[in-house]
Amino acid sequence: MRLLALCALLLGLNAATPALAVNPDEMLKDPAQEARARELGRELRCVVCQNQSIDDSDADLARDLRLIVRERIDKGDTDNDVRRFLVERYGDYVLLKPPFKQTTLALWLGPPVLLLVGAGMVALFYRRRRRTSVPPAVEVPLTPEEQRRLDRLMKETGQ
């Protein structure tokens, strides 16, 4: 029982300590607004460290952007307003999830198209194999000439 409690405690501790770069002094007073800022921060790219979100990153610029995101939320911006504000300055690059538009068609549609092409090729392969596979053999009796040859061969090997 004690062991179980210890396990539960350890699990609980583990869950409660995600990697965080957000400092307490940056947080908004309203928990709902802060939650929105956190949510947004996770999908905005830290433009210096590139593969981290501003929510994850310890870079100074990431901190600046976190503050600015919170400032805008505090001023009454919607999530989309905040996104637009940053895209206007840093381009789509600032969004960790690229938007679906003409220039990103290959990015979004490439994998499913390739998957379909692959599936098509596999299907084609199996269909062709079935078509060209040998039909079940019908027993054809030996011709007299063949029978004579066979007999001769059998005799030669001494059977």
Partner: peptide, 14 residues
């Protein structure tokens, strides 16, 4: 000075 609002307006990354 930080948080560098003008630099962010310029899209500065470094």
């Amino acid at each position: 000075p930080a948080p560098g609002r003008t630099a962010v307006d310029f899209g500065v990354t470094g």
